[in-house]
Simulated scan of single mutants.
Amino acid sequence: MPETGDTTGLDAETQRQVVRERYADIATGDGDGGCCTDDSCCDDSSVSTPADETARQYGYSADEIDRVDGDANLGLGCGNPQALAALSPGETVLDLGSGAGFDCFLAAREVGETGDVIGVDMTPEMVEKARENARENDAGNVSVRLGEIEHLPVADERVDVIISNCVVNLSPNKAQVFHEANRVLRPGGRLAISDVVQTAPMPEGVEADPDSVASCVAGASRIDRLEQLLTDAGFEAVESTPKSDSDRFVREWDDDRDVSEFLVSASITARKPEVTDE
């Protein structure tokens, strides 16, 4: 499947490079933030606080935030996929673009010792950070793998649920992401992601701006396009629900413009069909 840079004005390799560099800097404490509300939200030197407040804005409860030890919560994302996934004990969960592991560790508590969670991230620094956080959280049922979400290091029909938090928009080939998601899901498995979607034409220059691409702005697709990509990948029961109150944090993602004028966070769910006997 060809890689075109999808909805951005950058070629696929350049897009991957700017995204990887941005999140490597965040992982090592050198970055100025990703999909978050201000420059301090990803500062893991503070004990409580901007990142926690950002997570609350995204829809995480105080209990969920308190459950995770260490600096797994970097204040990144645009929603709470845990609220969509309805996880059950014993399930296998895959987190696309797992970052420092925050959603992985929350999922691990829901699936319990009989379940397991796989995180995949293309940034080595993030993978290292997530593995350190896994040890701190005693999360023996979490494994974090280095890889691209367009080429998942996961076997066919291995997982029950796929979650993701504001990551698919960063991909230069969203169609391939959803085909890979379908491949690794078991029949009847489900996808539950939070991501940003485009609601109006973007201002001139945004789609080709590397900073806008890496900060979860330029790569957003329209809802109808995402739904079609999911359907084309073999999913059914596709539903997308924009979050009307997301403008309160989305507008903070760019110092030069109010991106909430053309961007909104959305909850996106879908299911892989069951196998039917003919």
Rank of each mutant, 00 (worst) to 15 (best):
T114S: 08
T114K: 08
G115P: 02
V117A: 03
V117M: 05
G119Y: 06
G119P: 02
V120N: 00
D121S: 12
D121Q: 10
D121F: 01
M122V: 11
M122G: 04
T123M: 03
T123N: 09
T123W: 07
P124Q: 07
E125H: 07
E125F: 11
M126T: 01
E128M: 05
E128V: 01
K129I: 02
A130D: 08
A130N: 10
R131C: 10
A134W: 02
E136N: 11
E136Y: 01
N137I: 05
D138G: 10
D138I: 07
A139S: 07
G140F: 14
G140D: 15
G140P: 14
N141S: 06
N141D: 06
V142A: 04
S143P: 04
G147W: 10
E148S: 15
I149V: 05
E150A: 02
E150G: 13
H151P: 15
H151E: 15
H151M: 13
P153Q: 04
P153F: 00
V154M: 06
R158I: 06
V159Y: 00
V159P: 00
V159N: 04
D160E: 12
D160C: 03
D160F: 02
V161G: 01
V161N: 06
I163A: 04
C166A: 05
V167P: 12
V167S: 13
V168T: 11
V168A: 15
N169S: 09
N169L: 03
L170V: 05
S171Q: 08
N173D: 08
N173S: 07
K174C: 00
K174L: 02
A175R: 07
A175I: 03
Q176H: 12
V177T: 11
V177W: 14
F178A: 07
F178I: 07
F178L: 08
E180R: 09
E180N: 13
A181V: 12
N182D: 15
R183H: 12
P187R: 12
P187E: 15
P187K: 14
G188M: 09
R190V: 04
R190G: 04
I193M: 12
S194M: 15
D195S: 11
V197E: 11
T199H: 14
T199S: 14
T199V: 14
T199N: 14
T199L: 13
T199Y: 14
A200H: 14
A200R: 13
P203L: 09
G205F: 06
G205M: 05
V206N: 12
E207R: 10
E207P: 05
E207T: 11
D209V: 05
D209R: 13
D209T: 08
S212K: 09
A214F: 01
S215F: 07
S215E: 08
S215I: 10
S215G: 02
C216E: 00
V217P: 00
A218W: 08
G219Y: 02
G219S: 00
A220F: 00
S221C: 06
R222H: 12
R222P: 10
D224C: 08
D224M: 09
R225P: 03
L226K: 02
E227W: 01
E227I: 04
Q228R: 11
L230D: 02
T231G: 13
A233Q: 10
G234A: 06
V238Q: 09
S240V: 13
